[in-house]
Amino acid sequence: MKFPLLSGLFASALLSLAAHAETAIVLNSVDENVSFIDTRTYKETGKAPACKEPHHLMTTPDDSSVIVACALSNELVFFDPKTGKEQKRIKNISDPYQLGFSPDNKWFVANSLRLDRVDLYNAADFSLVARVSAEKTPSHMAFDKASQFVFITLQDSNEVLTIDLKTRQPLWKIPVGPTPAGIHMTPDDKYLLVGIMGANYVEVIDWRARKTIRKIITDKAAHNFLPRGDGRHVFVSNRSMNGSISLVDMQTLTEVEKYDVPGGPDDMEIRADGKELWATARFARKVQVVNLEQKKLSHSIPVGRSPHGVSFISHAPRQ
């Protein structure tokens, strides 16, 4: 080979491009479909039908599938995160709204926001194990590290409900601020962070002591969480029309950064290299991309109506 250095550089550039280029899957709730976005060009490359009234998507713990929760058609639709192709549908999952796997991967939990209920499934085969009444309006969920408890925010009764996964019984509720939405366990397993959508803060709960220990002011309509992947920081989407995303330090329990993200930022995803944060802007019908190095919005990608979840395979660790 005459130009080994040049060839090496060329190959490395190609590899780098290939590594960078992948498909992001975005769920459009009202349009009832998913959009595929080329993460290199930031352009929508296609769409595929999903199901009736889909809400939220999540990757399976092994990243082999992206699951879409279909509230009205009572099913889960699985997509291949690499190709975007539909893999399978699991029927008779009643009214799933928000989904979660317990850390030990034994439990698959589905919140039925509309029907005030939490369903506990065996994660291995998605067979129903128990139904727990959860008034009012069970929204998001978090687990403790030992997978003993699942914590559910109850949006309309302003509480956090704890369900014991061993007994499958509700244990206790604690009152929180108005309209709690997202909920996240700190990496040290000590505190629950709750996005208070009816106000402008994240409520910090010492769940073992069952009491609020702090309120971290973020912005109007604090909504959802995504860990940065460094084991210390978590992003908080503040879902208003002139919205923002806050970065919260989970050790000091303080807001350390904030980025303007208009259009109602809701669900988020972060690139594996930690350089970009993607967020679905529910009201703007867009996916907003924040360049975390420049700390500002870098791309606005038009998608469908009410985008409610974004996912790509090379994401940062979920902690």
Binding site: T137, T179, G198
Partner: peptide, 13 residues
């Protein structure tokens, strides 16, 4: 939010 009907937020939108 004031009426405690946050469950209807998406429907409201």
């Amino acid at each position: 939010f004031a009426l405690g009907l946050a469950g209807y937020v998406e429907m409201g939108f």
